[in-house]
């Protein structure tokens, strides 16, 4: 596959991403069938799908954690398989299952990941102060994370993800399991990131959230992208009034085709 001409506005690009696992009982199991995706500067892209649709696998391939079986992806023009280290420098990644080191303080956590990103000294400290101010961490940032509330942990994780000012943010179900305060803070953060020109790709199965946040949506089901577009495009295609309806209609259609 040729590398598409680099459009500086397309910060995240996937072409034919495919992930195959070998299962002893069922032979080859395809978790993701040739995913094509593009996400531009200042755009929020929502990946919708039920559990087991392949969302996590797709996001993990895009964020260099898993190697795709075939296909390629670029973050800010950097190929994720050819130069994963360079790609990771341009990436902020967060998921709800993300943990924190319990015996480190919030500040130490931020400093550790800053150091891993090659930041050091006064510049790093200044950046941490900036984040403390931006996310209002001042009250607890010097306590050990094992005593934090879920919301406090979430804030530290967000600060950790954007510490190195990544142009691309990949968030895997970032609001699952959060209370209403924490998830609204997360939504505010995503909106803020978009306004600053980042490209945000996130997965969710909460429709209301997607409806409110996303500039464009993709519906992933059984490893395939069933449909992609803005709300209006999707509504027009399925004839449903709300996103729930869009989703259900697409899934049923896919099930019908699969049976046929």
């Amino acid at each position: 596959m040729h590398e598409p001409a680099h459009d500086p506005d397309v910060l995240l690009l996937a072409r034919g991403l495919r992930k195959v696992y070998h299962d002893p009982e069922r032979g080859e199991v395809v978790a993701v069938h040739g995913l094509d995706l593009a996400c531009r500067r200042g755009e929020v892209y929502g990946l919708l799908g039920p559990n087991g649709a392949g969302k996590t696998t797709s996001l993990r391939m895009l964020s260099t954690i898993l190697a795709p079986s075939s296909g390629r992806a670029w973050l800010d023009g950097v190929d994720v398989t050819e130069d994963p280290l360079e790609a990771r420098r341009r990436l902020g990644f967060l998921s709800t299952s993300t943990g924190l080191y319990p015996r480190l303080t919030g500040r130490e956590t931020l400093r550790y990941f800053g150091e891993l990103h090659g930041m050091a000294g006064a510049a790093l400290e200044a950046r941490i102060e900036e984040l403390v101010a931006a996310f209002d961490l001042g009250a607890f940032v010097d306590g050990r994370t094992e005593g934090f509330s879920t919301g406090q942990k979430q804030k530290i994780s967000i600060a950790r993800a954007v510490l190195h000012r990544p142009p691309v943010l990949i968030l895997d179900e970032p609001t699952t399991g959060l209370d209403i305060l924490a998830s609204s803070a997360m939504i505010a953060f995503i909106e803020g990131a978009r306004d600053q020109g980042a490209c945000v790709l996130f997965s969710t199965h909460i429709m209301s959230e997607a409806e409110r946040l996303c500039d464009r949506l993709g519906v992933l089901y059984r490893g395939r992208l069933l449909a992609e577009g803005t709300h209006d495009e999707l509504r027009a295609r399925t004839g449903a009034a709300y996103l729930d309806g869009v989703f259900l209609a697409l899934v049923r259609e896919a099930d019908r085709e699969a049976r046929a």
Partner: peptide
């Protein structure tokens, strides 16, 4: 166990 591995793996560190 702590769920920090995934985060660690997306850092630009070999």
């Amino acid at each position: 166990e702590g769920g920090t591995l995934e985060t660690l793996l997306v850092q630009p560190v070999p």
